[in-house]
Amino acid sequence: MSIFAISFFYRRFYFFLVLITLVLNLACESKKTSPPQNGFILVTDDTGRKIKVPQNPQRIMALAPSATEMLYAVAEENTIVGRTQNCDYPDQVKEKPVVNNYPMDYEKIVLLKPDLVFTVEGITSAEVAAKLQDLNIPVYFQKFEKVTDIFRGLRDIGRLLHREKAAQRVIDSLGTELAQLRINKASPKLRVLAITWHDPIFVFGQNTLFTDKLRYLGAENAVTEIFAQPYPALTREYILKLNPDVLLGGTPAEMETTFFQQYPELKKINAYRHKKIFAPTDNLMSRPGPRVVESIRELKSFLAL
């Protein structure tokens, strides 16, 4: 019976972890910046790290594709000095020099001399950030759990770069679009399952931005249980039990010849029986950036709302 106890303990433990993260997050909300010293100010990023950043950053870049999109939305283009191999939006970014972020190309980034680097928690490791810090390149981590966190992130970038007005313009226009898309639908809510991999079956978990995007559409993530990993592996039985109304992961034809060919048992789910199977744009699903509203619009078209 001790096994049950262990499993129970783990769930409790993760609940506790989530709680701590939430509390920490709230604590981070009130970001204090200290008065400038020698042209530098001390700021606290979304993960609670205290870093020294230039008062007037002139050479910036991002180590994650979504963060690059954020910079392009707020910063002046000529202050952006580079991109990673995965940054491909907006189109102009492709003209910027490439810095490999995995494995981190330290020489190249030193060569480009950025005075402030933005990234997203989970994309850049603490080890890489520490090493960049040693090279006098401050790394500012951002963290996004909700759609509104992205707006806050844009505002933070605006403040650090003294582009508050530009940031506010972007936030306002995104906010207006979002308000137009928003649907406060009464129950029953459509339950949507988004898969990222077939073997084993990995899905967008409850603690991902995807869950919050669906909330704006009066729909919900079919995965309601909170797992330790944001993209948990599920069994076929678990998905049968979830019985999602909508399945995201590929076009119906693709899914028919791959997913449902491999797991014919899952043809019993509502999404398959009612032909509610769609292929969301990968970059929109995975990048927490200013195109989040575009992503919600795409989801809305799938839900036919």
Binding site: T196, W197, D199, P200, I201, F202, Y231, A233, T235, R236, Q262
Partner: peptide, 19 residues
């Protein structure tokens, strides 16, 4: 390429009865 592919390879090289 992806983190999912990485985890999938891990499952393969350590064993899994899911399929």
């Amino acid at each position: 390429g992806s983190e999912s592919a990485l985890r999938s390879i891990l499952f393969w090289s350590m064993g899994d009865f899911g399929r």
